[in-house]
Design a protein around this nucleic acid. Sequence first.
DNA 1: TATTGTTATACTCTATAACTATA
DNA 2: TATAGTTATAGAGTATAACAATA
Lengths: 147, 147
Amino acid sequence: MALPTPFLDRLLGYQLRRASAAMMADLARELADLDMRPAEVTALLVMADHPDCSQSEVGEALSIKRANMVPLVARLMERGLVDRTRADGRSHALRVSAAGEAVVAAARERIARHEARFLARLSPQQHAALLATLPVIRGAGETAPGD
Amino acid sequence: MALPTPFLDRLLGYQLRRASAAMMADLARELADLDMRPAEVTALLVMADHPDCSQSEVGEALSIKRANMVPLVARLMERGLVDRTRADGRSHALRVSAAGEAVVAAARERIARHEARFLARLSPQQHAALLATLPVIRGAGETAPGD
DNA sequence: TATTGTTATACTCTATAACTATA
DNA sequence: TATAGTTATAGAGTATAACAATA
């Protein structure tokens, strides 16, 4: 019964936005009982893989501005999921705490379930094609990582 | 120099979000000199293709909640881009004005430029595969339109 | 009773500018 | 001079609940 939108339907940006919004909404639901938001979880996962990294490094990896990392990290620390020690007087070294590791493990499970729900609609070929193509769109594709 | 994120890089939801954010930021820049935001433009384009449609119909087509359509349409009307007439006492009939049609034409041009910038990074096969696959992710793919 | 539009409100993510203290 | 973190603030999109008027 919805109005047709043939022009929009052929736009890559529009389709990306709609598909992304659908997955983000589902992820938010899946993470709700951990009281974690998508941005917090991704940051926590980066810290888990990079002990003693700085806020700026996490932000750079995720394209989160330094200013926006401040309240994000503050909340993770308030909840006892992340510990922070002084690195060199102007930068901090972030570490996922024991309590944080439990949340990381739970989040990985939930993310896997969330991904599986959507991948069930795609063939393995479509899945592989998306993982190969999407990074190219944002310019993270063919050039060597680190360029 | 950025931290590697191999776990995230293999997540469809994460890659969709990053690719979508890259295109949305570029689109917002491209539309800035029209003083139009992406959500306003998409709504205006739907109205242009569906004269005398209602706010709710536009919202349904774009997955914008009725409550959020109110300030959006109000702004388009304040700017003289859209006219509204009473349809049946509880619903309005929306129509793009002459001034609005000029904005629609300009927006279509800008969107085409914006799309072309990103499509230049993809093969025609990759482009076609994305347009076929992305709707499936949000559940708009194989079932007949209107289900 | 269900639908359309509306108001009010809150949350999430993002953006910029300016400041501090260190290097 | 450049970097890391911070503060304050604003914008954009989205979400819910409740209400009035109408069908």
